[in-house]
Design a binder for these strands. Structure first.
Length: 233
DNA sequence: TGATTGTTTCCTGGTT
DNA sequence: TAACCAGGAAACAATC
């Protein structure tokens, strides 16, 4: 089977998520054959990695992210040893998860889904459901979006900065740019920092963020925010 | 189909 | 005076 290039795959994807029909209980994006990790773009590889970090409460600092600056085809060619070298003790888990995805019977699943009779969870293995969720931008919350920018400085063009990495204190460097990026993710061209910050303030009550006194553009992750700590286990 | 959740939008008033 | 902060209220879309 020949594998199309990442660019050609992405050019075939819809520009908006809503252009694919969703069924009740079905939160994944329908990609037909593109579910397979072999077809992932670099971005999806990274998203998968992020999701695994969150799911297994991995210390993100222990992962050599530069080793995952690859597309799905390159990812699938990585050996067990490659994963262990790049992620330490998490290597086996990531390797197994990837293999599970590589060999899942996607064709059967998508065929059944076309008839709209079966919920995703009935036919997809758990790790595949993870991909479904992470491929859905509606599933990514604002605080996770912020956290992911902070955790990936190579993808963060001076938008946000850690003030105190240990305490989870961070600062907006380009508040409006972050708001624009968030708006782009949500297909909302009218997003502003004013609106984004209102959403941020709602997190105080849920203890996802903690209030930082008297400092402009500075926020702090709270006890209910996960995946940002250096030694989160 | 109603309830819930997570924003989004708008607003007023206060602070830096 | 602009930019930001705080939080109430209502609306909205997705999900349960």
């Amino acid at each position: 089977m020949s594998i199309p290039s990442t660019a050609s795959i992405e050019s075939q994807l819809p520009t908006t998520w809503s252009s694919y029909p969703l069924m009740p209980g079905y939160t994944s994006r329908l990609w037909s054959q593109d579910y397979k990790p072999q077809y992932w773009s670099k971005y999806l590889v990274w998203q998968w990695l992020q999701q695994m970090v969150d799911m297994h409460q991995i210390d993100a600092a222990s992962i050599h992210f530069q080793n995952f600056d690859v597309d799905g085809r390159q990812l699938c060619s990585m050996t067990y040893q490659d994963f262990t070298r790049a992620t330490g003790t998490m290597g086996p888990i990531l390797y197994q998860s990837l293999n599970e995805l590589k060999w899942s019977d996607i064709a059967v699943g998508t065929k059944k889904l076309k008839f709209g009779l079966i919920r995703t969870k009935d036919i997809f293995p758990p790790s595949l459901l993870i991909i479904g969720v992470l491929c859905n931008p509606q599933g990514t919350h604002l605080w996770e979006f912020i956290r992911d920018i902070l955790l990936n400085p190579e993808r963060n063009a001076g938008l946000l900065k850690w003030e105190d990495r240990t305490d989870g204190v961070f600062r907006f460097l380009k508040s409006e740019d972050v708001a624009q990026l968030w708006g782009k993710k949500k297909n909302n061209s009218t997003m502003t920092y004013e609106k984004l910050s209102r959403a941020m303030r709602y997190y105080y009550k849920r203890e996802i963020l903690e209030h930082v006194d008297g400092r402009r553009l500075v926020y702090k992750f709270g006890k209910n925010a996960q995946g940002w700590r250096l030694s989160e286990k």
